[in-house]
């Protein structure tokens, strides 16, 4: 039966990924999350926020978190090994991982973390993975070593300023590879995912995207993350959805909504 009360866990390990992103490891908990699903992370007396799961097995899971605002900076500055946080979930729909296919993963920013979880599961199922990452500059990239060293994954890098990999957008790499892959999965800025949807549509290839909106309940109750056009909450009907479905979202890559449902231009 349904139980959605946060479970308090101690941080088992903290890893620096880059100057703004850390990975928090929790152990002794069988979260049972699939790649693309997320949890709500509760900081007692402060707030609770959604984060994608970047790794999960029977005994541990990871959250990879960029310090961007009040909650995430407080987490970076005041929380370390042994400190307690509440976790509930996993929520939402994850990526559909096929067997024995050629997959391209397109990651922007912290999107590389949940997609690394996808990549690991995909390799286990006999897929080959073309892992394309992108960021403004090399300091914002993450998970490069893990991807580079993994069996069955090829790493491609693009940065806006050319400080790592090729200069430009990661979508230009996808454009070159699209003819050779069966399916694309993407996670990152909506404008990037939209560009990837267009590339896939032209090439006649399926794509799965991860749609982030301001979320509160994670259970499809409060309605804060409902998207225009489809009218459904993406915390339960997403965050991962087919590109063909995401196309029906009105204002895709144009606006989202804040904590009271007010439109905000991206």
């Amino acid at each position: 039966m349904k139980n959605d009360i946060p479970k308090v866990l101690k941080i088992a390990e903290v890893r620096d990924e880059n100057p703004t992103v850390k990975t928090y490891v929790f152990r002794g908990c069988d979260l049972g999350a699939k790649p693309g699903q997320f949890v709500n992370l509760w900081m007692p007396r402060v707030d609770e926020k959604p984060f994608s799961v970047s790794y999960c097995d029977k005994d541990e899971f990871w959250l990879t978190i960029a310090a961007v605002g009040d909650f995430t900076r407080k987490l970076r500055d005041e929380f370390s090994v042994g400190d307690k946080l509440g976790v509930r979930g996993p929520y939402g729909k994850g990526y559909t991982i096929p067997e024995g296919k050629k997959i391209a993963l397109l990651a922007g920013g912290y999107g590389a973390a949940p997609l690394y979880f996808v990549a690991q599961e995909a390799v286990k199922k006999g897929c080959t993975v073309e892992f394309i990452v992108g960021a403004r500059n090399k300091d914002l990239l993450l998970y490069l070593d893990r991807i580079d060293q993994a069996e069955g994954m090829n790493l491609y890098i693009a940065t806006d300023d050319g400080s790592s990999g090729e200069q430009g957008y990661n979508t230009q790499i996808l454009e070159r590879l699209i003819g050779d892959v069966d399916i694309v999965m993407t996670c990152g800025p909506e404008i990037m995912m939209k560009a990837a949807m267009d590339i896939c549509e032209k090439a006649g290839k399926p794509i799965e995207v991860s749609i982030e909106r301001y979320m509160k309940c994670g259970s499809g109750v409060c309605g804060n993350c409902c998207v225009d056009g489809l009218g459904v909450p993406v915390c339960t009907k997403g965050p991962v959805m087919l590109g063909s479905e995401a196309r029906k979202i009105k204002g895709l890559a144009e606006f989202h909504r804040d904590n009271v449902g007010f439109k905000v231009v991206w």
Binding site: K2, N3, D47, G86
Partner: peptide
């Protein structure tokens, strides 16, 4: 504005919320 999260949760027996009537 409404309240900060967590604003709601449920168990098999009850649901409890304090969204604080956020609205635009």
């Amino acid at each position: 504005e409404g309240h900060k999260n967590p604003t709601m949760m449920g168990s098999e027996h009850f649901y409890i919320n304090a969204v604080g009537l956020p609205d635009g």
